[in-house]
Computed example of a mutant assay.
Amino acid sequence: VANLAPCFARLVTLPNGLEVILQSDDSAPVVSVQAWCRTGSIHEGKWLGAGMSHVLEHMLFKGTSSRTGLEIDHSIQDAGGHMNAYTSFDRTVYHVTIPDTGAKLATEILCDIMQNATLPEDELPGELDVIRREMEMGNDDPSRRAGRRLFETAYTKSPYRHTVIGYRDIFDKLTRDDLLNYYRERYAPNNCFIVVVGAIDTDEVLEWINDCYAAQPARSLPPVLLTNEPRQVASREVTDEGPFEHAHFHFAWHVPDVRHDDIPALDVLSTLLGGGRSSRLYLHVRDAKALVHSVDAWTYTGEQTGLFGMSAVADADKLGQAQAAMLGELQQFKDSLADESELAKAIKQFT
Rank of each mutant, 00 (worst) to 15 (best):
A79L: 14
A79C: 14
A79T: 13
G80T: 12
G80V: 09
G80I: 12
G80Q: 13
G81F: 10
G81P: 10
G81T: 09
H82I: 14
H82D: 15
H82K: 14
M83Q: 15
N84P: 11
N84C: 08
A85Y: 06
Y86L: 09
Y86G: 00
Y86D: 04
T87S: 10
S88I: 02
S88F: 02
F89Q: 15
D90W: 08
D90F: 08
D90K: 09
D90C: 08
R91K: 06
R91E: 10
R91V: 06
V93F: 03
V93M: 11
V93K: 05
V93D: 04
V93I: 15
Y94N: 04
V96G: 03
V96L: 04
V96D: 03
V96S: 02
V96E: 02
T97Y: 02
T97M: 08
I98K: 09
I98S: 07
I98M: 07
P99D: 06
D100N: 14
D100T: 12
T101L: 10
T101K: 12
T101N: 11
G102T: 12
G102K: 12
G102E: 09
A103M: 03
A103I: 00
K104G: 05
K104L: 01
L105M: 02
L105D: 01
A106H: 06
T107R: 00
T107I: 04
E108M: 03
E108P: 01
I109W: 09
I109E: 03
